[in-house]
């Protein structure tokens, strides 16, 4: 049925654009990533399983994926708020704030980690006020969430922002004319329109958090079983010249992120259909 629809499409360039897309995707992403799988294939199935389910590794999955989900949730809530405020409201310094949002991209992750550690460590600007209340931010799993929130924030803001900008004011006006109050408009009109992009932002922020290495090692404390992230274990394997062990864990990470992204993309498709 879908194929039939494509034949009815009058727009040109499908073959060319999809062809180039798949070609570039293969050259840059798929073929290089396949080298991971091939390298891992040197392990027997039993070796593979025991490598990727070792207690240390399992603990690191929990820390990494758990922290990434929390960070992505924080970012989804505050990211949408920030995007909304930036597009819809006028206040002094708005443009500066707008530019600031990209900071986590521009700042090298190592600098971000060092800087966050500077701020949130027990002798840091913020950390020294948290410490007396028994809150340890840096060098705990909480530090990992902090770093992941920092690096993931722009993903949500920058995905949601253009969509808010594109919302036609007429829609909202029509809703008002039809007797909807503001809350109803937001809930029934705006939120469903934003939902796909929020889900995208969530997915990207989550995915970015799972893979992050540079900033986290400076603030996590890296204690085995407690605050050791999966990418660090990959590095650990590499340091022992254990390429196969490293690529085995990398494959698991890759597969997990791929599945989560796929689910979220399907969810997004569903939400769009629901919105229509």
């Amino acid at each position: 049925m879908k194929l039939f629809k494509r034949h009815n499409n009058v727009l040109p360039g499908f073959g060319l654009s999809i062809g180039f897309t798949i070609f570039y995707l293969s050259v840059i992403v798929l073929i290089p990533l396949s080298s991971l799988v091939f390298r891992t294939a040197g392990l027997t199935w039993g070796e593979f399983i025991s490598t990727v389910t070792a207690p240390r590794v399992m603990a690191s999955y929990k820390v990494t994926f758990g922290a990434a989900i929390i960070a992505a949730l924080i970012n989804s809530i505050f990211g949408v708020l920030v995007a909304w405020v930036l597009v819809r409201y006028r206040f002094p310094g708005r443009r500066i704030v707008d530019a600031l949002v990209d900071l986590p991209f521009a700042l090298p992750t190592a600098v971000a980690g060092i800087t966050l550690a500077t701020i949130y460590s027990p002798n840091g600007w913020v950390g020294r006020y948290l410490e007396p209340h028994g809150i340890k931010a840096a060098f705990t799993p909480f530090g990992i969430v902090l770093a992941m929130t920092f690096i993931g924030l722009p993903f949500v803001v920058r995905t949601v922002q253009p969509v808010i900008e594109e919302i036609e004011v007429e829609l909202e006006e029509a809703a008002v004319c039809l007797g909807a109050n503001r809350r109803q408009t937001l809930q029934r009109i705006i939120f469903p329109m934003l939902l796909p992009s929020i889900l995208t932002g969530f997915a990207l922020s989550f995915a970015r958090g799972v893979g992050e290495y540079g900033s986290i090692i400076f603030i996590a404390g890296n204690m085995p079983m407690v605050s050791e992230i999966t990418p660090l274990l990959i590095i650990t394997k590499l340091e022992q010249f254990d390429y196969q062990g490293a690529t085995a864990i990398a494959c698991v990470m890759l597969l997990t992120s791929f599945l989560m992204l796929l689910v979220i993309n399907l969810l997004q498709k569903w939400s769009r259909r629901y919105a229509e």
Partner: peptide
């Protein structure tokens, strides 16, 4: 309390 990944990281 903290295991940095490199010697200079620990010094810092």
């Amino acid at each position: 309390p903290v295991l940095d990944s490199g010697a200079r990281g620990s010094t810092n």
